[in-house]
């Protein structure tokens, strides 16, 4: 019994060490994750401005507004992704000889018992291993928690992020009653520069309003119509910009939005699209159009995230 406990303890310790090593290796070359900032922490001296980082500011009339923004992967992200794939391949190749030994044992056992022979394991290649997609490695979710500042009429959210081009991905929820939504069929992008605050205003209240009529949803048609009416009401609320409590010497720039094409449903959410925005985003059926130029926005071939079965 003692031996079993010792073996288990050693196993846990080894697993923890191995996990630590993997976590350390996979953390390398990843941008620092987004971090919500609270005004109280800032006032207490717990937060200092970082000129090498970017900031996203978002406001809403109520706490319900929240959104997830996806930073478009750059060369460094793709390189890190490929490195992680290689690491996963090395791990799989390390495990392969023991799979073959097990297969030899099982084959002999099957022969002795006149049972069907098991298939030989295939030596792993890059196509057989996986790593976290580069697109989901650097997402920033603003709201509904971690409020920067609030008063009775408004909530402000401020997040420190990696500079780059961000796409409004949707609303990713952890609450079962509130399904996650991906703006997979048309959305907007904007740039976040290092050393400045990119102000989105209350765009999450104003932009993803449903189209001319209620769309299909998880609830009944009556509930969908009610939600649609509520969302439309919110979309017509006044604009909010800036945030009380933001240090006066921080440079704040209003976000410039651009039409962005379709995206894969990376998180397997309900699909939606941002409603047309005059001068920025338009649609011809499901084709996304850059309203600045009148040109179609290129969209990738959409792929399922489900594992295929042949």
């Amino acid at each position: 019994m003692n031996g079993v406990i010792k073996a288990l303890t050693m196993g846990v310790a080894l697993s923890a060490a191995a996990w630590g090593e993997v976590a350390q290796a996979e953390k390398s070359d990843r941008p620092e994750p987004a971090k919500a900032i609270e005004a109280s922490a800032m006032a207490a001296g717990g937060y200092k401005f970082k000129p090498e980082r970017g900031y996203i500011l978002m406001s809403a009339h109520s706490r319900v507004g929240f959104g997830t923004f996806l930073r478009l992967p750059d060369a460094r992200d793709w390189k890190a992704y490929e490195a992680d794939l290689q690491k996963a391949l090395v791990r799989a190749q390390k495990a392969y000889p023991s799979l073959v030994s097990q297969w030899q044992f099982d084959t002999q056992l099957a022969k002795d018992n006149h049972k069907p022979l098991p298939p030989k394991p295939v030596e792993p290649t890059l196509a057989d291993v996986s790593a976290e997609r580069p697109e989901t490695r650097n997402m920033a979710t603003l709201g509904p928690m971690f409020v920067f500042a609030k008063d009775k009429d408004r909530f402000n959210y401020l997040s420190e992020v990696e500079p780059g081009t961000y796409v409004f991905f949707g609303m990713l929820s952890q609450v079962e009653q509130l399904p996650s939504v991906c703006m997979c069929m048309g959305t907007v992008s904007f740039t976040v520069k290092a050393g400045e605050v990119t102000d989105l205003g209350n765009m999450l209240e104003r932009l993803p309003q449903l189209p001319e009529k209620p769309t299909a949803g998880m609830g009944s048609a009556a509930m969908q119509a009610k939600l649609w009416a509520k969302q439309r009401e919110r979309s017509q609320m006044g604009e909010l910009w800036g945030a009380p409590g933001l240090p006066a010497d921080w440079r704040v720039t209003r976000a410039e939005l651009f039409a962005y094409g379709k995206m894969n449903n990376l998180t397997g959410a309900l699909i939606d699209r941002v409603a047309p925005i005059p001068g920025i985003l338009a649609y011809r059926h499901d084709t996304v159009i850059d309203a600045r130029t009148g040109q179609d926005v290129p969209s990738p071939t959409i792929m399922t995230r489900a594992k295929l079965k042949h």
């Binding site: 992967p73 750059d74 060369a75 992200d77 780059g164 894969n264 990376l266 290129p298």
Partner: peptide, 9 residues
């Protein structure tokens, strides 16, 4: 599959 275009890379 193919994903959102990554203009930087």
């Amino acid at each position: 599959g193919q994903t959102a275009p990554a203009p930087a890379a």
